[in-house]
Nucleic acid binder design. Sequence first.
DNA 1: CGATTGATTGAGGGCTCTCAATCCGGGTGG
DNA 2: CCACCCGGATTGAGAGCCCTCAATCAATCG
Lengths: 251, 251
Amino acid sequence: MTTTSVHGPETARLSHAAPPETAMPGSVPPALAAEGAAIRTRRGQSLPLTLDGSETVFVVQAGALMLRVTLPNGLRQVVMLLYPGDVFRAAFAPPQAAAHLSAVSAGEVLRFRLTSFTALADDDPAIARYYDDAVAQQTARQAIHMAAVGRLDCQERLATFLMELVLVTGVRAPGGGVAFDMPLSRTDMADYLGLNPDTLSRATSRLRATGLLSQPERHRGLVRDFESLAALTPAAQSLMALLGRSPAGLP
Amino acid sequence: MTTTSVHGPETARLSHAAPPETAMPGSVPPALAAEGAAIRTRRGQSLPLTLDGSETVFVVQAGALMLRVTLPNGLRQVVMLLYPGDVFRAAFAPPQAAAHLSAVSAGEVLRFRLTSFTALADDDPAIARYYDDAVAQQTARQAIHMAAVGRLDCQERLATFLMELVLVTGVRAPGGGVAFDMPLSRTDMADYLGLNPDTLSRATSRLRATGLLSQPERHRGLVRDFESLAALTPAAQSLMALLGRSPAGLP
DNA sequence: CGATTGATTGAGGGCTCTCAATCCGGGTGG
DNA sequence: CCACCCGGATTGAGAGCCCTCAATCAATCG
């Protein structure tokens, strides 16, 4: 199943219906989807970074992944979240840091060996372009996340994260407001935001108390007023510019 | 320990080839150096992200750069530091976040238009490989940095940063110990570590008080004992594995 | 129905931030 | 040569925010 075959240049150029400037979810080149090994993920499933010795590359098609590092003293940090359209190369994980890639929700990813992926990219500039644009967008997202973790307080970090989720998975809810997925466990959310789970729980409670956030069910969120949420984080403008083009035409 | 990262189970990989696994400083392909516009930087110089309308790509040859974002409320975060061998593409900077790329020391960078760079990479797989490996290594560094900012206390963050500097610019000092550059101002260091300048100053003072760190001159540091420094941060192992191959053969 | 896991919440302590005063180094002008 | 000034670094005191720890509560599952 794992693609080792390298196509000739004529198979290239399959995806040319050029999307915007930055790679966005859903725009995975068909040529890639045809070559990769499709893997169904279930919540919590671990994705090994090596495939019998060779480095792997993943392309997210549905669901979400997270990269977590665990420092020798047991402290954990979720370093990045990967959404549909994102790419991940095993070398993104720092060595000697107990890096661990896993699915945070059911979904589907494409898996390649690095050598195969590189061959595909060499033959098809569209794939190379796709990969580079996806990585660039992820790096920009990482920059915002870094600023949030480094500079924002507990409440602002939560608001920033919720905006991220809304912009990626949000859909207009019937009763007004926006509904979205909250795939991470409370602990993982805390690890992503550099907070203590207890502290995060308090922040979430405060937000619920204001009526802005509600949780219709486990792993699901609903914000009454998107504008009010955006007003809670200094990173709102930046996030919207980067992830904007809201699935359901949010303001 | 159970590191499942690529760098873990491949003792085989380490043995079979010559240089380190990831792109490292100094290995800039000659073909790139021949095509790029070489730019001398001076401390504090700003590097525009666009060149009359087109996106730019930078390759650091000497010195160091930093990417700083400024949130609307005035909070600043230095998102990444770029050392010789690193690459930067304008799309790495998040939009609407007052992103600013500048030199933190005198040095030299190569500048390209994205279109030119892409054309070069399409024609020469070695260039594509160089770029991808450099980006991957930078992403791994970012992951460590993220864990440091999110999870370590003031003292540990400083130690982590000093290790980073030592591993990148350190050279054995005559009187024992390691001398290295500290190009950032105290304020920029604080912005990089997500700390208040005052707090950082206290941490630095404590380190000096122990005799581990001294500052022979402005923008220059000297650590008595590298091992003791490494013992101060949980990220030591990871940093050494990633940036290891110390210029002067550190332990 | 009881057990277990995870989320919530309270009390207390610690680390970092804030603010302001002081110190230091470098440049300027008398 | 020295007095002066200015920006940045250092340090102290106090407050605030978050972490720690533990008890309580809710939800899931055998």
